[in-house]
């Protein structure tokens, strides 16, 4: 589904991502973990075209997407959520989801039509908001949501695109215990027909969901495998303990 080879990103001498070969199997849930600053979000930004790699290539479904713009990658069925909730503060929840659905259908250029036509998305919009636990809040502006709710809306937006590849950057960060449980259930439900890559700090979430775990440190791949084998890897233990001591 997704493959990177020799992927590197340098920021004025600092290698945030260094020579990463990543291979995400079709239909897998693949977790990226690692200490803060390990390059996980940079890697996400590379995969979704928000930054261009210094070297290396990215292929999605066998097609080279290296250097493509974010919207081109999104149009190839790749949706992402942002680590820091990235929303349209003035728009309501319904308007958010409608925007995503309209983006998926590629009908946003119609300037001669009434926006009342977006009402045909009403059922789908309400369904998506229900799914992420924001049912009944469709008229609320996103700016007034609590942090965890914004994360949930992020998820709804990503799902609205019906992506084949879903990239989730810390989907449960800032959520309460119940919301984390609901999000895990939701991801289990939606993984059926898609491939998911997630960055996550919550090891409970990782062990519940991930088929494969890649551990990053200093922008490099430190270990890779299923959760149990990675957890017992001596390098990984050192990396995490080292961080804890520092």
């Amino acid at each position: 589904m997704l493959r990177t080879s020799g992927l590197s990103k340098e920021f004025s001498g600092f290698r945030a991502v260094s020579d990463v070969d990543l291979s995400v199997a079709d239909g897998a849930v693949h977790a990226l973990v690692g200490p803060n600053g390990a390059g996980k979000t940079t890697l996400f930004n590379l995969l979704t075209g928000f930054i261009k790699p210094t070297s290396g290539t990215i292929t999605i479904e066998g097609r080279d997407v290296t250097g493509m713009r974010p919207e081109q990658i999104a149009q190839r069925g790749v949706a992402r959520s942002f680590q820091i909730a990235s929303l349209f503060e003035e728009l309501t929840l319904a308007e958010h989801v409608e925007l995503a659905l309209q983006g998926r259908d590629g009908t946003g250029y119609r300037f001669w039509r009434s926006d009342k036509r977006l009402r045909r998305y009403a059922a789908e919009t309400d369904g998506l908001l229900d799914q992420v636990g924001l049912g009944g809040m469709s008229g609320v502006p996103a700016g007034s949501l609590a942090y965890g709710q914004k994360r949930a809306l992020e998820l709804a937006l990503a799902l609205a695109l019906s992506p084949r590849l879903l990239l989730l950057d810390e989907p449960t960060a800032g959520m309460g215990v119940e919301d984390v449980a609901r999000t895990i259930e939701l991801i289990k439900r939606v993984r059926a027909d898609r491939t998911i890559v997630l960055v996550e700090h919550n090891m409970q979430v990782v062990s519940d969901l991930a088929d494969t775990v890649t551990v990053l440190q200093f922008g490099k791949v430190l270990a890779e495998g299923d959760y149990q084998s990675v957890r017992n890897d001596p390098d990984v233990i050192t990396a995490y303990l080292g961080e804890a001591v520092a």
């Binding site: 928000f50 974010p70 919207e71 949706a79 942002f82 349209f88 003035e90 250029y109 926006d115």
Partner: peptide
């Protein structure tokens, strides 16, 4: 219009609109 919605989305958060 649907287009007008996208205009506001671009004003509010360009990166999000691209995503």
């Amino acid at each position: 219009s649907p287009f007008g919605r996208v205009m506001v989305a671009i004003r509010e958060n360009q990166a999000r609109a691209r995503a």
